[in-house]
C-alpha cells in the first residue's frame, strides 16, 4: 500500500513523500537504541573495576580488566552451573521437539475415537497456572526421588502442550496424498514420520527448538524449587544468587550476567529468523 501512495505523490510533493518514508524509521531507531544500550552498559561495566564503576562518567572503561570474569568463574562455581544448564536445555529441547512433532503428526493425520476430545483436554492444561501444580508437582517429583536432581527439571519438560499445538497446526498443512503415496510404496509409519514428515516440518521444528532452548535456559521458578545444592544449580539460579553473595558489586553482576547472556545471544544470532518466524506463526494461527 505504501508503494501505491508513494507513486501517486511523486509528481506533486517529493518532499512530503520523502518525509513519509523517513518518519516511521525514527521511532524504530529509538526503539532499537533502547534495546541495545542497556546491554552495552552491562558489557562495559563487566570490564571495569569497582572503584571506577562507582565514580567514572565515561562510557568506556578507563582501565580494561578481566578480573571480574575471573572472579565469577573461580568463586561462584560457574562452570558447573553452565554444564548443568547445557544438559537441561539440550536434553529437554531434543526430547520435547520429537514428542511434539510425533503427537502433532498423530493428531493432525490420524483418525481415532475421541481424538478431538483428547486434544481439547490436552490444550486445557495450558489454562492452568503453574502455581496450581507447583506443590503437587513438587511432591510427585519427590516421590520419584528427583528432588535436587537435574532429572527433576528434565523429566517435567519432556512434553509441551504448546509444542503439540504448534506442530499439529503445521502438520495439517502437509498433504495427506504424499503420506498415502509413501504407504502404497510400502513405507512403514516410523519411516514415513522420520524420512518424509520430519524433513518437511524442519522449519517449525527449528522454531520450536529455539523456543524450547530459550525457555529452559532461562527457566527460574521451577529450578529454584527443585534444585538446592550449589553443584546442581543452573545458571539463572547462580546469577540470581550473586545479589546476596556480592551485595551491590555491580561489576561482578555484570560479568556474571554477560556470561549467561552470551550463549543465548550466540544461538539467537544464528537462528533469529526462526525465533521471529516461529513467534509470528504462532500468533497468526491462534
Amino acid at each position: 500500500m505504501e508503494l501505491a501512495s508513494a507513486r501517486q505523490r511523486r509528481h506533486r510533493q517529493p518532499l512530503g513523500r520523502t518525509l513519509a518514508q523517513i518518519a516511521p524509521h525514527i521511532p524504530l531507531i529509538l526503539c532499537c537504541c533502547s534495546s541495545i544500550v542497556p546491554f552495552l552498559w552491562m558489557l562495559m561495566a563487566s570490564f571495569r573495576n569497582y572503584k571506577e564503576l562507582v565514580t567514572s562518567r565515561s562510557f568506556f572503561p578507563q582501565v580494561w580488566t578481566l578480573k571480574n570474569y575471573q572472579d565469577i568463574i573461580t568463586r561462584v562455581n560457574f562452570p558447573v552451573a553452565f554444564k548443568n544448564s547445557v544438559i537441561v536445555a539440550i536434553s529437554v529441547t531434543v526430547v520435547m521437539v520429537l514428542t511434539s512433532s510425533a503427537l502433532g503428526f498423530v493428531f493432525a493425520k490420524y483418525r481415532f475415537w475421541g481424538k478431538e476430545q483428547l486434544f481439547t483436554i490436552l490444550l486445557s492444561t495450558m489454562m492452568v497456572p503453574f502455581a496450581v501444580v507447583l506443590v503437587p508437582l513438587y511432591l510427585t517429583v519427590g516421590k520419584l526421588g528427583l528432588i535436587n536432581q537435574l532429572g527433576g527439571i528434565i523429566v517435567t519438560g519432556f512434553w509441551s502442550t504448546f509444542g503439540v499445538f504448534m506442530m499439529r497446526q503445521f502438520m495439517e498443512t502437509i498433504p495427506t496424498e504424499i503420506i498415502d503415496a509413501a504407504r502404497i510404496d510400502g513405507a512403514g509409519e516410523p519411516r514415513i514420520f522420520f524420512t518424509i514428515v520430519i524433513p518437511m516440518a524442519s522449519a517449525p521444528m527449528a522454531a520450536l527448538a529455539t523456543f524450547g532452548f530459550m525457555d529452559n535456559w532461562d527457566s527460574f521458578l521451577w529450578p529454584l524449587v527443585v534444585l538446592n545444592s550449589p553443584n546442581k544449580q543452573t545458571i539463572p539460579l547462580i546469577i540470581a544468587g550473586l545479589r546476596s553473595l556480592f551485595w551491590t558489586r555491580y561489576e561482578l553482576w555484570a560479568a556474571g550476567s554477560m556470561l549467561s547472556v552470551v550463549p543465548i545471544m550466540a544461538v539467537y544470532a544464528f537462528a533469529s529468523k526462526y525465533f521471529i518466524r516461529g513467534i509470528a506463526m504462532s500468533g497468526l494461527k491462534a
Binding site: F220, A240, G256
Partner: peptide
Amino acid sequence: YQAIIFLPVVVSLVAVSLLFRM
C-alpha cells in the same frame, strides 16, 4: 529492526533484572 527489538525477549529475565538493578 525486528531482530534488534526482539533481542531483550531472548535474554534471560534474571540477567535483565540484575542489569536493570545496576
